[in-house]
Structures are given as structure tokens and as C-alpha cells.
Design a protein around this nucleic acid. Structure first.
Lengths: 342, 342
DNA sequence: TGCAGAAAGTCAAACGTTTGCACAGTTTGA
DNA sequence: TCAAACTGTGCAAACGTTTGACTTTCTGCA
């Protein structure tokens, strides 16, 4: 009773050979119904569970997939986007009886190193990589595991990945403001480390051009994701000027909320004086007043699709580099208003 | 080059036996310096990494710990508390070269079932359990793995766990309001499924009693954690009454933010008409206006301590059921004001 | 009656390590 | 001078499964 029961224990008690036990438990048709029953009963009685390590060893596969976060998993978890992705990943992993192994980023470990670590550990049969950076692991080449990325990969032609159409998202968000009559629009939260930002900015410019609205470099203001601290001094100058922006496209809800607070100190109201359209549709944004109009990129779906794809690759159902595009949704709330007559 | 190098490949090229390779790579003192060097060089050249499955099989241990979330991991990740804990867990796991295996809650799988699943999988050498529920797995008995819980366990005497002193936290939060002159205080967000709520409520009552303030059952208003939807109809009645509460102890920032919005619709201001002291000190709460006065339970530290403890148990450094108490911090911001003269 | 083939099991090798023991060669100590 | 001890290495068993090949027994058919 003390030690865990092994297949041999079951075999002995059921008076068959270990191989028969193995087959019986896996419903191999070569085992008679009678023996199958007997084996099952004994297995249950002993609370026998096959040792996965032994199993994995001989089958040369595990039921584990590694999950790797771009920033050290640690840092990134602060933002609701990542937990939501994880939630999606977990849902389909669970359904297909897979486990997820987290890359527990040792502090200051590079993304690539973490990836190698996970791959080399031999525990995982595949990799999910949230490498949304523009300069991810260069030498991903020698990694032999099946891998799917969430976000835009460096080499789209040869990668499996799931993503939003961020160009389109940037375009639609901007167009929404333009349609409300805004022309002086600021782009907040540009972080050139993230590929998606490039694309959203591209969409922004495209929409602006289409409506003949001017794009000023000065009005593309950076802010690191996650930390979400824009350059308030700079923003102060911009918004205290006479011809200040009447609307902003903000890359993230927390950022928008911060901006809103800042504008308040300047005596500017949202959406009365400045409209904000935001991204990520977080809980905080919903509860905020005014409730934020925000683009939901559906992180949970991103996760679900990524995991499905990976598992299908592992099982051999998918062979060619595949790209899945998860649609976004623009959710209208109260932070955008038609431009006030001047 | 195609298949992964095994220890035998290394042995062949280094012209030694597999056992020597094994010993050389683990710095066994019985191997001469010369051979050690040679083996290392070959191993590096072949990019050899020992197969963890094989290793785990013979050593009867893995470098993986399972992490189990109370609610299906999925649902709970929505709240910033859990990612923060995960962050802490990951930090020390990474430092000690352990990996974390997530219980990817199959939908509707009970906490206990998920636990068994994780334990039975044989992948994990230990378990972290965020079982903050009041009625967790009853028959945790037959689980033989080392396990530490985060939150208050059912059987404190025989459990390893790390926790806040929630009674004290409830007490201090309430006292903070009482010291500001408040007496009509509402307790918002009671969720009897969580043990910590019981304790916080106990602390609340204790403080109230100490100041001779009345505690009314009606003013202990429940709300499920995570979903964070209180009964607004009920709250409406309470706050529209003549003698409405002048302050509330709220179990969660998102909940507080929701309450704030609701009070606004009633024409009540925070903290002018109603003060709020909150829990969890989330980003959303900081950015909110007014910025929330909130008690930080330091979820990251909870995670770090839990993982350290577990790893110490696994390594044999800790033997007796241990309890670690992580201090909380009351962070003063703008959502509490001294009571207005009536 | 003989024989093919199916049915139901058993055997043993294999997966890639680790590790107790054996062994050969070299020192050491008395 | 010889036993004892030490050094450096190889052998082979073990960890707990899975699986291809093999054996035995039985069934049906010519």
C-alpha cells in the first residue's frame, strides 16, 4: 500500500502478464472482454496510474506543452492580456488532456534562452510562444519542437502562428474617430519593441491619410507596454497647446485610464474635450468612468486557437505553416464623442 | 544530426562508457579531470541534453511542481491576484531550476479531481494549491505528494501553508475607517466560499465591537469573488436610505470601482459622501479616481514563500507542517475621508 | 484428417538515464 | 614484500512502460 502500484503489481494480482495489463487498460482489441474486466478491477483496487515518465520514455512523446512568455513570464503576467491568453490555452489543453509547463523565466533570462531551456528540458512535446516582440529569438532555427507563436512572427512564411489583424485594428479604431469628425488625433502607447504596434500604427496612418488628416511625429507618443508610463511632460505640452488633439488612439486600457486622469488635472474632460479609443477591453476599462470604448482583441480566443493548432501539429493533423487570424471587436462605450462644434 | 544525441552517442565519441559520461557531466569526483574535459567538449559539440524523462524515471523524482488553482485555473486568472501569485511562484521556481505544471482545469472539474489528476499524472514532484475555499478537497488524504497551500487550509495543524493574517487585515482596514470617525460601515463582497472572507469579516466585527459601532446583517453584502457582481438592487435600497453607510470595507478593488460607479448614479461621491477602503491594491485601483485606499496582501510574496517552502519540503530541508504568515500593507490613497460633520 | 488462420496471450527488447558493484592498476604503510 | 587502500573506469541492473514477434489454443473448411 505504501509505494505506488506498478503495472507489475496489477499483472500479478490479475494473473496476467504486464503487457496484457497495458493492452487491457488501453482497450486493445486483442484482449478478451473477460480479462479486460478483471484487469480493470484490479487496477482500480490498487489505484494504479501508469507512470507517465516511463510512458513518455518509450513512446517518445509527452502530454505536456511548454508555454513561453515574451517578457519573463513574471513581468508580463501583470497585464490582463496574458492571463486571458493563458486561460484560452488552458481550456483547450485541458480538453485534450494536455498539461502546460510554464517557462518560469529566470530573471534576466533572454527569451531565446528560456525557449531553449524549455525545449531542452525534454519535458515538452511542443511550444507555445508569446513572442510578440519585433526582435524575438534569432536562432529559433535549431529548435526542433513543434511551435506556434501568438503574435506576428519574424518569418511568417515558415511559422505557425495566430494573430489579430493589427493593421486593420489600428485602421478601424482610427476610422471610428475620424467618422466622429475628429481630425487632430494623437497616437498613444507606441512601443516599437512590439510588432503589433508597428502594424497598428500603419493602420492609423492609413486611415488618417484616407481622410486627409495630418500625422505628426510629435503626436505619436511612445510608452512601454506593461509599465504603461507615458511621458507626461511631453503630453502636457501637447494638450496645453491651443490646437491640442481632440481624440487619441490609445494602445491599452490602463494607459487610457492614466491619460484620463492626467487630462483631468489639465482641466480637460473625456469625452467632452478629448475622445479616447482604447485597446484590450479590460475590466478596469469597463468599470472606469467614462467607460472606455475599446478594441477587444479576444486574447482568450488567441490562446484557444494557438493551442488547438499546436496540438494538431503534434498529432500530425496539420503539416504546413499555418496562420490563423482572430477577429477583433470594437466595443462602443462612453469615451468617444462626436467632435464639438468649434 | 537529425535525431537528438543520447548519452551513448557522447560516450562513443569520447571513447568512454555511458556511465562515465553521466558521472563526468555531473562532476562526480571519481572522474579524472582529463576525461571530464573531453566528455564535456563532446557533449557540447553534439548539443547533448540528458533526457529528463529517463532521468526522472530512474531517480524517481522530477523537477516539476504542479500548480493548482482553486477555481478552474481558467476562470480565476481573470483576477490580478492570481497572476501575481503565479509570478511569485515562477520567480523562485526558476531560480531553483524547477518548472511549473499548470492544472489546466478541464471545465467543471472539481478542485479535488484536478488535484488527483495532477498528482496521478506522475509528472510533478510536489503541489502548490491555491485552495482558498472553505470546503476544499475533502479527501486530500490519499495524495502522497508534498503539498503547500496558499490560503487557510481546512486542517491547519497538519498542513503546510502560507497565508495572510486575514482576520487582522479585516480588523485594521475597519479600524482605519473607525479612526476617521465612521460608524455606519458596510461590509461589501462577502463570499462565504472563501475562508479568508470569514476571517476578514471576523476582524471587521471585532473592530466594530471595539468602537461600539453596530453591525447589521443587512449591511454585510455578499458578492462572488472574481465575477464581482454585487446585488445592486439591494445596495440601492441601502444607500438611498436616510441613514446610509458613510463608509464601506470592500473585499476587492474591481468591486470597489464598480461600487463607486454605482454610487455616482445615486448622486453620491467618493470619498465626500461615502469612503471606501478596499483590498488587493490593483493597478486599476491606483489609476482610478479617486485612487483607492487599499490593503495590499502581497500576492507575489505569497507565491514566493509558498514555492520556497514546497521546494524545501521536497529537498527534505523542512519536515514538520509549517505555516508562513505574509504581512499585508494598508496603502492610503484618496478614497477615504474623515467623516463630514453632520 | 490436415491445415490455414484467427484469437488471446506471453516474451523480451527497447526507451535513456543512474548507480552499486566489480575490476584493474597504482600507491601506501608496516 | 605483500596486503590494504585508493583511483579511475566499465558492466549491468534498474526505473515502469509499450510493442513487435512469437506461442498456444481453437475454429472452420476442404
Amino acid at each position: 500500500m505504501a509505494a505506488k502500484a506498478t503495472i507489475k503489481d496489477v499483472a500479478r494480482l490479475a494473473e496476467v502478464s504486464p503487457s496484457t495489463v497495458s493492452r487491457a487498460l488501453r482497450d486493445n482489441p486483442r484482449i478478451s472482454e473477460e480479462v479486460r474486466q478483471r484487469v480493470r478491477k484490479v487496477a482500480k483496487a490498487l489505484d494504479f496510474h501508469p507512470n507517465q515518465m516511463a510512458r513518455s520514455l518509450v513512446k517518445q512523446e509527452t502530454r505536456i506543452v511548454g508555454v513561453l512568455f515574451a517578457e519573463s513570464a513574471a513581468a508580463s503576467m501583470g497585464h490582463p492580456f496574458y492571463p486571458a491568453v493563458l486561460q484560452g490555452l488552458g481550456k483547450v489543453a485541458g480538453e485534450r488532456r494536455y498539461h502546460m509547463l510554464l517557462s518560469t523565466g529566470v530573471e534576466n533570462m533572454s527569451e531565446e534562452a528560456a525557449m531553449r531551456d524549455l525545449a531542452d528540458s525534454g519535458y515538452a512535446s511542443g511550444l507555445i510562444c508569446l513572442s510578440t516582440l519585433t526582435t524575438p529569438a534569432q536562432s529559433t532555427g535549431s529548435i526542433t519542437l513543434p511551435m506556434v507563436e501568438i503574435g506576428h512572427p519574424l518569418d511568417p512564411e515558415n511559422s505557425y502562428y495566430v494573430d489579430n489583424d493589427n493593421l486593420r485594428a489600428g485602421y478601424e479604431a482610427t476610422k471610428y474617430l475620424l467618422n466622429c469628425g475628429h481630425r487632430r488625433i494623437l497616437f498613444l502607447g507606441y512601443d516599437k519593441r512590439f510588432m503589433m504596434m508597428e502594424n497598428r500604427l500603419k493602420g492609423f496612418k492609413q486611415a488618417m491619410a484616407e481622410f486627409g488628416a495630418p500625422v505628426m511625429d510629435d503626436w505619436i507618443v511612445p510608452s512601454r507596454m506593461i509599465e504603461n508610463v507615458p511621458d507626461f511632460a511631453h503630453l502636457g505640452e501637447i494638450f496645453q497647446a491651443d490646437q491640442h488633439p481632440t481624440a487619441v488612439v490609445s494602445m491599452d486600457d490602463p494607459l487610457s485610464i492614466g491619460l484620463n486622469g492626467f487630462l483631468l488635472t489639465l482641466g480637460l474632460c473625456v469625452p467632452g474635450d478629448v475622445s479616447i479609443i482604447s485597446f484590450n477591453n479590460t475590466q478596469a476599462g469597463q468599470y472606469h468612468s467614462p467607460a472606455l470604448t475599446s478594441v477587444d482583441v479576444h486574447p482568450r480566443e488567441l490562446g484557444m486557437h494557438a493551442m488547438s493548432l499546436l496540438l494538431n501539429i503534434i498529432s500530425g493533423a496539420v503539416e504546413k505553416p499555418t496562420h490563423i487570424n482572430v477577429p477583433f471587436t470594437l466595443i462602443e462605450r462612453d469615451s468617444v464623442a462626436p467632435i464639438a462644434a468649434e
